[in-house]
Each structure stands twice: as structure tokens, then as C-alpha cells.
Design a protein around this nucleic acid. Structure first.
Lengths: 162, 162
DNA sequence: GAAGATTGATCATTCAATCTTT
DNA sequence: AAAGATTGAATGATCAATCTTC
């Protein structure tokens, strides 16, 4: 990896921060996934879908709205919902007003699954992340994340950047 | 998601920071992956392997050392190397001293591929991340990442946590 | 039996193509 | 044709089982 252009390369401080960040993000996601799976038979993706549905008062959402909330591709969500439906966590329902669309809804089993999984998952997040940081660092993490997201939103050529 | 225990739950500030962080990390990885793929026909995983190999003076490493450097499972690396070998980016070589083990080495083509890809990738990282942050935030990101990693290392039951 | 590594099965993600309704 | 959604094929990641050498 030749340092072809001093201006374009990362300096020492940046390089260190970058490697630490990438490693942290990958490892954290892997650990959270494994703990969730082991404690509750739910993947992070399952959990994310269930959170979106429990955020709505009726536990129901149009599929495209769900996809926007998760910022997932339609086909990813479609496959994910098919797997979750097969396991009885959600069910699909056709939409009366617009027959192109459809709804997904939490089943009783899906609601039970997230209620059982949430406390442990939150505890894991607290233990691995927030217990390791000062209050200032928590605020800094929020601000840094927001800044990077804003940059991506601004720079993405199309509206649907993911 | 009932707030079953005030102590275990996340407060407002934490919740916000956490959602922003998770979304940032996922989106950033997705965007980096797509840009790398589009510009160079390399995935992030390919790039990570090539970086490890170019970090060694001879462009060669024992497979287990590589796995430790990447902190990947053995089987993930094995599959990855098989795909990369098929594409001519690396080659495997048996090990003289210990016939259980083997080496992987960069091919000329592999070296050319990462040299072609690196400047663009670094430019993308700079544009999406470092250009969006102040110097203090860069330092904070490094410190936060290091703290979280240290916590995971300390809390992981087994040595090989991933 | 343990260390170094590979293999095969299964599941998740992406991409392009498709289908239906508007 | 565009919007809402699904499908199938190809690629990637994870898990358990295996194989060889120490």
C-alpha cells in the first residue's frame, strides 16, 4: 500500500482511529449477534424487524414503510419476512386500500419473543458499550455518528442510498 | 419493549447515541463495500486480507497468523482464501517446517489489485468519515473504540472470543 | 488427543428479473 | 410506465464434522 499521495492518505492519528473503529464495529456486531442468538434464538435482523413493529401501537406496518424504517432493500426485507413468517414471528396480510401493497403484523409469538429477548439484549449493550464509556464519550459517540450519517446523506448520489 | 427495569434500560441520551451509532456503522460498511466493489472488483473482505499480506515484507503469512490478525474464524478465512485463489489474487503454499500448516502469499496480480484499489478506498474513507469530524472527534472516536474493544476483551469468556 | 487447516450444509445478503396493480 | 412486492441465482458467513500431522 504505497503512500502515493500525502494529501489523500490518512495520518497516524487517523489511521489508528480508523483501524480501532473498524475492528470495534465488526467485533461488537458479531458479539451482539451471538449473544442474542444464544439467549433468544433471534438474529440481530430478526430483532431489528421486531423492534420496528413493536414501535407501532398496533404492531402492524406496511412493508415499504418497514423497509424505509430499517433502511433495508426491499428484497432483503422480503426474504427476511418470509423466514420470520415460517417461524411464526410475523404474518403478512393483504392491504385493502391498495392491492399492490401488504401489511406485516406481529404475532403473539413474535411479541413474546421480543419481550423475552429485549432485557437481556439491552443489558448486553449496556455492559459492552455504555459501561465502558464516560458520559462525555456517550455524547461524543452520538455526535460523531450523526455527523458521519449526515455526510453520507449529503453525498449519496441517489435518494435511496442503501 | 416494556421498560421492565429502569436500571437496566438505556436512558434517553444513551438510546439516541445507540441508534445513531448502529445505523452509522451499518450504513458506512455497506457504502464502503459498494464503492470498493464498484471501483476495484474487491470486497471489503478481499481488501482486508490483501492489507494483512502487504503489511508483511515478503507478502506471505501462515494461515493461522492471518486469521489472528483479521480475528476471523479459521473456516471463514479458508473459504475466503479459496475464492481469492480461484481469482488469482493469492496462492497457497505448503509449509516446510510443520507439515500441518501452510502459507498464503500475494500473487503479482493480488499486489496489483490492492495497489490499484487503495488510493480510492482511502479517499472514500476520508470523504465519508474524517472530513466530517473535527480533530477532537477523531481522537474521541479512537478512544471510544479502544475502550469498547478493551471491555469486550476483558469480558469474553474464552480467549478466542471471535 | 490437540493443532492447523479444509469441507459441506445451512442460512443471510445482494442483484437482476419478474409479477401485479395503479 | 411506475409503485409495491416477491422470486431465484450467486455470493458470503457460520457451524459442525472431518482430515492430517504433531
Amino acid at each position: 500500500m504505497a503512500n502515493t499521495s500525502a494529501a489523500a492518505w490518512l495520518d497516524e492519528r487517523e489511521q489508528e482511529a480508523w483501524r480501532a473503529f473498524i475492528y470495534m464495529a465488526e467485533t461488537l456486531q458479531a458479539v451482539l449477534n451471538r449473544e442474542l442468538q444464544a439467549d433468544s434464538e433471534l438474529s440481530s435482523a430478526d430483532f431489528a424487524v421486531l423492534v420496528q413493529l413493536t414501535d407501532r401501537s398496533d404492531g402492524r406496518a406496511r412493508i415499504l414503510e418497514l423497509a424505509r424504517g430499517l433502511r433495508w432493500e426491499k428484497s432483503r426485507l422480503s426474504h427476511q419476512l418470509a423466514r420470520m413468517e415460517k417461524r411464526g414471528l410475523v404474518c403478512r396480510d393483504s392491504c385493502g386500500e391498495d392491492r399492490r401493497g401488504s401489511y406485516v403484523a406481529l404475532t403473539a409469538q413474535g411479541r413474546a419473543a421480543i419481550e423475552a429477548a429485549a432485557p437481556g439484549h439491552v443489558a448486553t449493550v449496556r455492559r459492552l458499550v455504555f459501561d465502558q464509556l464516560t458520559e462525555e464519550q456517550v455524547d461524543a459517540l452520538g455526535a460523531i455518528s450523526a455527523a458521519i450519517v449526515a455526510g453520507m446523506d449529503a453525498q449519496c448520489p441517489t435518494e435511496e442510498c442503501d
